[in-house]
Design a protein around this nucleic acid. Structure first.
Length: 942
RNA sequence: AGGACUAUAGCUCAGUUGGUUAGAGCGCUACCUUGACAUGGUAGAGGUCCCCAGUUCGAAUCUGGGUAGUCCUACCA
């Protein structure tokens, strides 16, 4: 074995072996356990969030697989309608082609081509993380099976009256020419202005002032609103205003929506271009005037509609100068015109939230269009109940509130998108504009009794990507067919996801699943029983990682390492804002002056698990990764030691008789404790505590103590064969078990070592992956061994403390005297002579009787005094200082506990066992204090 | 504006139902290349548990009120 652990030597080989041998597929035996991977965007590549997500899911799935469950972890990607279409369109643009040049079918061919070539980046990367997903069942939302499921779901929902088509205001992306959902709109504060315009009153009695952040929409104003109780404007209500530029007459209305204190207290109402104004318009039955085209340019002829039926009533010519003008150009011109006409009262600087498309970055327009909607409120009801009654549990629980608050105020879900890449809506129109929904053209004709002579045209739009993702848990298992996979693995067990997509995905998945999936009693099935929600991975300074900030980390760069120059280049290419490059470079050079070292997958995964506590976000600390890389190395070297001691030796693999030492019985006992703790924590999703328990057991108990305790036995030429065999057997068995315990967290290193250790432990098998997960056995806990080794550790630590504080070379053997010990102390000392001598590096050990002890440095372990004679070793001043420090500490403790016990109400009100404990504490501390004091006096008297 | 979450060592974080001498890793100090490991060992320093009040015999932990930060939702045209 190499002297240090080299992860790159082993990781890919083991992954290939596991995958080739089919170890990731369900075993077909045992109770099922299923996790569906949240499908990453097919255009995407690995980021830290995926790394975190995968570390947790793989830990869960490997844990359950080893426990004998019939595990399915199913991978796949979604087709990411907008993102993918953008990627391909950008490529076409480089050849000066638009998708319209190609036409729909040709364009889709191009998209598929692109998907075949580069769509698999992220799945290849997931392999590097060691994720044990069943690749044979990989799914893609545009696959045939899933496409059928989407069609089926749409038709059924339509037939159930839960999908409708209607004209509504939507978030319109004028660059991408599609509707997008609320959740794809990011509103950030930006600096703008509040323009105060004078609108002249029709009766010539003057003007009123409206304030607006979007002057260009005034072309579509259909009213001015004031608060009904605003005294300033009572007389205006019901009057008419002559809208400048257009000359249109509009009423002054009263509505409580208006804030009296904001701006002028008068609000211009543009129902076709603002969500709030839309509601006001509806209440007052105002006309809606649409002034923008799909590019958000001013129409040459506005469309005027009413709320009744949304039918276009008539057109209205735009002021000529504005026709075809971009919205922001129009804004400038309108302001100028107001100014020229003396109607611009003032301009106040104003910060406002500007809605932008998360993909395109352009300002989103509320725009009136025909779209398809899902009646979410109906579907939400059972979905809320499932969480209320615990059929679905969120971990941590507080996310349930977030879920409820969203679900209880849910809006209908706009599912149509004006894109080409996606599932085309299974709806057809005749020439009269009647709509027919069915799975195919033929089905529609039959269902609606339409003759072959009637021309039908399919809806051009596609469905929101999340519509298909919402079906993910069951569509990927074969729905609408009633497959054995569905029967076996649905409902799935856990969904692991970031809190940011609870609304995006989780809620919709619950709604859809419960509508379509019923159990044998006809009751709705939930998609999963637990939703494990983890936080965002942030950079070391707590900043959100983003390409534009240039602080993203690729988990594989931590696995493989990366040179500084390469990292700088990676972070500064392909930026949306190239001017940021310089800043990003500086920052990167400062943060990683040496680049990033190679830490290996196991260390990275262990880090993620260690950070997976219940808090919201994770500040990623490279120091932790390094620490866990060292932990891997520690395991590696422990294994090296064990193999050096045991390979080719008698390890009792065939159940030969053995003698187990105190140390053997102790480490076996501690192992039971570790097993219990790790399972307990994993069962409640506390990956951090499980990882910590594992770390402590392996490093602080097995390596620090047990391996050291094994040396005096193995190096003792006089030790019996049974004794040596017992020690070797324990070394090997405990290591083999520890590897199994660690495997879900660190799959690669554990497999590599296990292959060599397992035979020595008499364990047969091709892979650690399919070995049973360790389970604690109370019968193996030896209380006496636990007590004795604790005592032994105390004595050794006491001696080491004297050594350290007195600056005695660790290489120098020292004599030690014991005094005043109990019979138990004597027994323990005598049965551990060799160990004490070896671990504390003793020259001699002597029990003192009643004789006067020599001048010595002293430590106490309970009643037992441990003395290191001063002659030639101990400096008086140093010992005085050390004792004074000890004494100080213990005096404080005595005072504290005594104070407690002197408190009458403590004695009378605290439970008896607590009082007893405090009394014992005081007795111990006082005795120690007295002894230390005596010792200090003696030394000072020298 | 409403809501949620967070505040513990220089840094990143644990701390179960109130009873600990408040812990870990990294970093820091001193010493040590001893036959698994310097990606190591040994010993150590380091804390007003954000502040104030309350409940209690007893509060990092429970309650109330502040302060600071993060996030979400709704937004003021």
């Amino acid at each position: 074995m190499e002297k240090t652990f080299q992860p790159s030597d082993i990781e890919q080989n083991w992954y290939n072996t596991w995958e080739e041998k089919g170890y990731f597929a369900p075993s077909g035996e045992g109770d099922s356990y299923c996790i569906m991977i949240p499908p990453p965007n097919v255009t995407g590549s690995l980021h830290m969030g995926h790394g975190f997500n995968n570390a947790i899911m793989d830990a869960l799935i490997r844990y359950r697989r080893m426990q004998g469950r019939n595990t399915l972890w199913q991978p796949g990607t979604d087709h990411a309608g907008i993102a993918t279409q953008m990627v391909v369109e950008r490529q076409l643009a480089q050849q000066n082609i638009t998708r319209h040049d190609l036409g729909r079918d040709k364009f889709l061919e191009k998209v598929w081509e692109w998907k075949e070539q580069s769509g698999g980046t992220i799945t290849r990367q997931i392999r590097r993380l060691g994720s044990s997903v069943d690749w044979s069942r990989e799914r893609f939302t545009m696959d045939e099976g899933l496409s059928n499921a989407v069609k089926e779901a749409f038709v059924q929902l339509y037939d159930d009256g839960l999908i409708y088509r209607g004209k509504r205001l939507v978030n319109w992306d004028p660059k991408l020419h599609t509707a997008i959902s609320d959740l794809e709109v990011l509103s950030e504060e930006e600096k703008g202005s509040l323009w105060h315009f004078r609108y002249p009153l029709e009766d010539g009695s003057g003007h009123l002032v409206v304030a607006t952040t979007r002057p260009e929409t005034m072309l579509g104003d259909t009213a001015v609103a004031v608060h009904p109780e605003d005294e300033r404007y009572q007389s205006l209500i019901g009057k008419q205003v002559r809208l400048p530029i257009t000359g249109r007459l509009i009423p002054v209305i009263a509505d409580t929506y208006v804030e009296k204190d904001f701006g002028s207290g008068c609000v211009k109402i543009t129902p076709a271009h603002d969500f709030n104004d839309y509601e006001v318009g509806k209440r007052h039955n105002l006309p809606l005037i649409n002034i923008l085209d799909r590019d958000a340019k001013i129409l040459s002829e506005f469309t005027v509609l009413t709320f009744e039926g949304y039918e276009s009533q008539h057109g209205e010519k735009a002021p000529e100068a504005y026709a075809g003008m971009d919205r922001f150009e129009a804004r400038k011109k309108i302001i100028a015109e107001f100014e020229d006409a003396g109607l611009l009262e003032k301009i106040d600087p104003h910060t406002l939230k500007v809605p932008r498309g998360d993909r395109s970055g352009v300002v989103i327009e509320p725009w009136l269009t025909d779209q398809w909607y899902v009646k979410a409120s109906v579907l939400a009801k059972p979905a809320i109940e499932a969480v209320e009654d615990g059929r679905i549990q969120f971990v941590p629980k507080q996310y349930e509130n977030m879920y409820f608050s969203w679900m209880r105020d849910i809006q209908d879900w706009c599912i149509s998108r004006q894109l080409w890449w996606g599932h085309r809506i299974p709806a057809w129109y005749d020439n009269q504009g009647n709509v027919y929904v069915g799975r195919t053209d033929a089905e529609v004709r039959e269902k609606y009794n339409l003759g072959a002579d009637i021309a039908l045209r399919q809806d051009d739009d596609v469905l929101d990507t999340w519509f298909s993702s919402a079906l993910w848990t069951f569509s990927t298992l074969g729905w609408p067919n009633n497959t054995t996979e569905l029967k076996t693995f649905h409902p799935t067990d856990v969904l692991v996801t970031g809190f940011d997509i609870i609304f995006f995905w989780v809620a919709r998945m619950i709604m859809m699943t419960m509508h379509f999936m019923k159990d044998e009693q006809g009751q709705p099935q939930v998609p999963f029983k637990y939703v494990y929600v983890h936080g965002l991975v942030r950079d070391g300074e707590g900043q959100k990682m983003s390409k534009s900030k240039g602080n993203v980390l690729d988990p594989l760069d931590i696995v493989d390492g990366i040179e500084l120059e390469t990292l700088v280049q990676k972070r500064t290419t392909g930026l949306m804002q190239p001017q940021m490059a310089k800043k990003i470079e500086e920052r990167t050079r400062k943060e990683f002056p040496e680049g990033i070292a190679s830490y290996g997958t196991d260390a990275l995964r262990f880090t993620f698990c260690s950070l997976a506590s219940t808090g919201r976000d994770i500040k990623f600390d490279m120091g932790r990764v390094e620490g866990f890389r060292n932990f891997c190395n520690k395991i590696w070297n422990a294994a090296r030691y064990v193999l050096m001691q045991c390979e080719g030796q008698d390890t009792g693999a065939n159940n030969e008789s053995v003698e187990l030492t105190l140390a053997d019985r102790w480490i076996i006992s501690r192992l039971q404790h570790a097993e219990q703790e790790i399972c307990r924590q994993l069962d409640q999703f506390r990956f951090d505590l499980a990882a910590q328990a594992l770390y402590e057991f392996i490093w602080n108990e097995y390596c620090d103590w047990y391996l050291e305790l094994s040396k005096p036995v193995l190096w003792d030429d006089t030790a019996s064969a049974e004794r040596k065999r017992g020690t070797r057997r324990t070394l090997v068995r405990v290591l083999e078990t520890s590897l199994r315990l660690a495997h879900p967290f660190m799959p690669f290193i554990t497999e590599e070592i296990w292959q060599r250790v397992a035979p020595l432990a008499g364990v047969k098998g091709d892979t650690i992956m399919l070995q049973p997960y360790p389970a604690p056995d109370a019968a193996k806990i030896d209380e006496q061994a636990l007590g004795d080794i604790e005592w032994l550790k105390g004595v050794i630590l006491a001696i080491r403390n004297i050594r350290g504080e007195m600056d005695i070379s660790p290489a120098k053997p020292i004599p030690v005297l014991f005094r005043n010990g109990s019979a138990e102390d004597q027994r323990r000392a005598e049965s551990n002579l060799a160990v004490l001598r070896s671990l504390a590096k003793l020259e001699s050990m002597t029990w003192l009787g009643d004789e006067e002890p020599p001048m010595a440095a002293t430590q106490l372990v309970g009643e037992l005094e441990i003395l290191v004679p001063m002659a030639g070793l101990i400096d008086k001043e140093a010992e005085v200082a050390r004792l004074s420090k000890e004494l100080d500490k213990i005096a404080k403790e005595v005072a504290r506990v005594a104070g407690k016990l002197n408190n009458e109400s403590f004695i009378s009100k605290a439970p008896a066992d607590v009082v007893e404990k405090e009394k014992a504490k005081l007795a111990d501390a006082s005795a120690t204090e007295a002894k230390l004091k005596e010792q200090l006096d003696k030394i000072q008297a020298m």
